[in-house]
Design a protein around this nucleic acid. Structure first.
Lengths: 202, 202
DNA sequence: GTCTATATCCAGATAGAC
DNA sequence: GTCTATCTGGATATAGAC
């Protein structure tokens, strides 16, 4: 049964369960069952249930640092390649949203942070950083560049970033909760972006 | 010990615990302990842990229907009394935000819905209705009135409502997670509202 | 209504055979 | 590494005295 990646399978199964039920409500037996082993066998890979969560957090941190657009802040390049035409901007943003909605690891990590945010201080910090601070910081920088380039009107870039990003954050959360509403949400995102570039014109 | 309101005390204690730990992670003994009785005594008031949650949901529904601004939609009156001056609008909205942030029942219900949204379909529906659909519906109607009255520029009122409300939703969630950031958030709300009325001018 | 005591079950975790 | 068997504690829920 073991192909040498049982440890990773345990992490994947645990994240999937934690992202729906939460850490406390998920049992070791459930995780083991999802992997196809007995719960006792799980202790050959992790010394405790807490150790699984700790390893998961590490994994989330690493994947975020390595793959997230928002972890690094190189707006200048992004501002250069940012599409001027509203149609292209809509396409690009919708593509990004679809990606983070459907990537299993990203989607599950996001949901786990939502569920655990009031209970686990470490995950609360991570939730604020990954899904608020870094996103707003990235778009604030990007918008500053777009203002300098004359694409957007001059106004408080931090507030502009909030007005741009935070509705999208809520819509992503809505899709996490009710995936069947993705089409409707994409339509709203489309209108939102066009309207944003209309009210903050050059 | 019993002053005739033990049942209500159980509901209050349960909501407080559910809103941080979630339903599954909270034990009957914890709830009983918070009320100051033994766990067995709790079964004189509720036949099961699930029955406590059911009663809580009923209570949340009733209090929402009775007290929430967004449950009834009488925008016309609200649009008439809606402050024209940005300063007054900021004051009013900040006051509403502070109220729902600090009212224990409202705040705990909101957090419980956030925690349980991926696990409990009934609470997922409630979360979408109370903290998304109804709020957006209310402000869409209000904004329509304000457009007609010539206070706001003509544009898609649903998107305007989203751009107005959803950043505030995220900031409320941020305060739920990190209450010490309330002052900073209120400053952002202030700037956000002024900027909103600036970019959607008559 | 509250209590102590208990029944039953399932959780996390360990021991030791294979 | 995985298994069966087991330990120990804590969970929901019930029985019956006061």
């Amino acid at each position: 049964m073991d192909r040498g990646n049982t440890k990773q399978e345990i992490l994947d199964a645990a994240l999937e369960l934690f992202s729906v039920q939460g850490f406390e409500a998920t049992s070791i037996a459930q995780i083991a069952g999802a992997v196809g082993i007995r719960k006792a066998s799980l202790y050959s890979h992790f010394e405790s249930k807490q150790a699984i969560l700790d390893a998961l957090v590490q994994e989330v941190l690493e994947q975020y640092a390595e793959h997230s657009l928002f972890a690094r802040a190189d707006w200048e390049k992004d501002a250069d390649s940012f599409p001027q035409a509203p149609d292209d901007a809509v396409q690009m943003i919708q593509g990004q949203i679809r990606y983070i909605l459907h990537d299993p690891a990203i989607s599950r990590a996001r949901k786990m942070l939502v569920i655990e945010q009031f209970q686990n201080p470490e995950l609360a910090k991570l939730q604020t950083k990954q899904n608020y601070t870094d996103v707003l910081g990235y778009f604030t920088g990007l918008i500053k560049c777009l203002i300098q380039k004359g694409v957007l009107a001059e106004d408080d870039p931090e507030i502009m970033a909030a007005q741009f990003c935070l509705p999208i954050s809520v819509w992503i959360n809505l899709c996490d909760r009710e995936p069947e509403r993705e089409t409707e949400v994409m339509e709203l995102v489309d209108k939102h972006i066009r309207q944003f570039f209309r009210v903050y014109p050059k």
